[in-house]
C-alpha cells in the first residue's frame, strides 16, 4: 500500500500518478531521449539515421519479441545468441548446396525452433531451471554451428539474399523493419488476444493456480521456448543477410540486449507481467542508447558501461514505481 501522502503532482494525486507512470512512464523516457538527441546532435533526425536506428533495432527487436514470451511464462532463454550463429551457418550450407533462398530461410527457422522445443521440453518435462538448461544448451548450439561450418566463416556472395537485410521496400522502408513490424503484430495478437497468451500470463503469474484452473502448463511452457527459438531463427536470417556471410562466431551477447529490452519495457522477472507495446518501446530505447552514444562520439567501451548502468537504472525506476509489489 502507498504511503498516505496526499500531495498533488501535475494535478493528479499521487496514487493516480503512480498508476499513470506505471503504464506510460517508459514512453515518456523514450520521447525524452528523442528530444534530447534531436537537440544535441544535428544528425539525429536525418532520415538516414532514423532508418539506421530502426534497422539495428529490428534484429534485437525480433529476439526480444520471443524473449518476452519466455520471461512472462517465468523462464529465461540464454541460448538465442548462439542460435543466431547456428542459423547463419545453416543458411550458408543450404545456400551453397542448393542456392534456394526460401529453403535456406526455412531450414534456419526450423533448426532454431527445434532447439527452442528441446529447451522447453527439458525444462518443462524434468522441471529443471531454465537459466541452467539454456546456459548449457547454448554451448551445444554454438558448438554445432562450428561443427557444421567446419569452424570457418564464408562469404555468401548472394546479392538476392542480402536484400533481406539491406534492401528497402519502395526504396524507403528497410525489410528488417517490416519483418519486426510483422513479428510485433503477431506477438501482440498471440500474447494479448489468444487463449495461449492468457495461459502464458497465468503460468508465469502463479503456476499452481494455473494448474488448478486446468491450464496445460507443460505445453504453455514449452510453447514459450518454441516461440523464442522461432524468433531467433528469423533474427538469424536478418543478421546473416546483413553481413552477407555465414559465421559461426556471431551473436555473442545478443540475449543480454533482448532481456534488457523486455525489462526496460516493464516485463517482470518474476513472470506474469509484460506487454508487447512495452517491449517494443524497450527495444527502441536500447536502439536510441546505441545510436545516441555513437552520434555523441562515445567509444564503444564506454557504451557498454553506459548500457549496463542504464539497464540498472530502468529496473530501479520500475521497482520504485511498482513499490507495492
Amino acid at each position: 500500500m502507498e504511503k498516505a501522502n496526499e500531495k498533488k503532482i501535475l494535478g493528479m494525486d499521487q496514487h493516480d500518478l503512480s498508476l499513470f507512470m506505471k503504464r506510460y512512464g517508459i514512453v515518456f523516457i523514450m520521447v525524452g531521449m528523442f528530444l534530447i538527441l534531436s537537440v544535441s546532435s544535428p544528425n539525429f533526425l536525418k532520415i538516414n539515421n532514423i532508418t539506421n536506428v530502426f534497422s539495428t533495432v529490428a534484429l534485437n527487436g525480433v529476439l526480444a519479441m520471443g524473449m518476452v514470451f519466455v520471461i512472462t511464462a517465468g523462464g529465461i532463454d540464454l541460448s538465442i545468441g548462439s542460435m543466431l550463429a547456428l542459423a547463419s551457418t545453416t543458411i550458408g550450407i543450404v545456400l551453397q548446396a542448393t542456392g534456394n533462398i526460401p529453403l535456406a530461410c526455412i531450414a534456419a527457422i526450423i533448426i532454431c525452433t527445434f532447439f527452442g522445443l528441446l529447451n522447453g521440453l527439458l525444462i518443462a518435462k524434468f522441471d529443471m531451471f531454465p537459466f541452467v538448461v539454456t546456459l548449457a544448451s547454448q554451448l551445444v548450439i554454438r558448438g554445432l554451428g562450428y561443427v557444421i561450418s567446419g569452424g570457418y566463416s564464408f562469404a555468401l556472395a548472394n546479392p538476392k539474399f542480402s536484400k533481406i537485410g539491406l534492401g528497402k521496400l519502395w526504396n524507403a522502408i528497410p525489410y528488417p523493419i517490416l519483418i519486426l513490424f510483422g513479428i510485433t503484430i503477431l506477438a501482440f495478437i498471440l500474447l494479448h488476444q489468444t487463449k495461449f497468451g492468457r495461459y502464458i500470463y497465468a503460468v508465469g503469474g502463479n503456476i499452481n493456480a494455473a494448474t488448478a484452473s486446468g491450464v496445460n502448463v507443460f505445453w504453455t511452457r514449452v510453447g514459450s521456448f518454441i516461440i523464442s527459438g522461432f524468433c531467433a531463427g528469423v533474427a538469424g536470417i536478418i543478421m546473416t543477410a546483413r553481413i552477407n556471410a555465414a559465421q559461426p562466431n556471431i551473436g555473442i551477447g545478443y540475449e543480454t540486449d533482448a532481456i534488457a529490452a523486455c525489462v526496460i519495457g516493464g516485463t517482470s522477472f518474476a513472470g506474469g507481467i509484460s506487454t508487447i507495446p512495452g517491449t517494443l518501446v524497450g527495444i527502441i530505447i536500447i536502439g536510441l542508447i546505441y545510436n545516441g552514444m555513437n552520434l555523441l562520439g562515445i567509444s564503444s567501451y564506454w557504451q557498454t558501461i553506459c548500457k549496463g548502468l542504464i539497464i540498472i537504472g530502468a529496473v530501479m525506476l520500475d521497482t520504485i514505481i511498482n513499490k507495492k509489489r
Binding site: 487463449k195 492468457r198 497465468a202 503469474g205 502463479n206 493456480a209 494455473a210 488448478a212 507481467i273
Partner: peptide, 26 residues
C-alpha cells in the same frame, strides 16, 4: 497459491478456466 494469480486482473482470473467457451475463431 492455488486460487488466484494475484497480480493479474479480476477479469483474467475469472475467465482463466472458461476461455474455451469465450472463443471467436482463434
Amino acid at each position: 497459491n492455488f486460487g488466484l494469480c494475484l497480480f493479474r486482473s479480476l477479469r483474467e482470473n475469472v475467465s482463466l478456466p472458461n476461455l474455451r467457451k469465450l472463443h471467436k475463431g482463434t
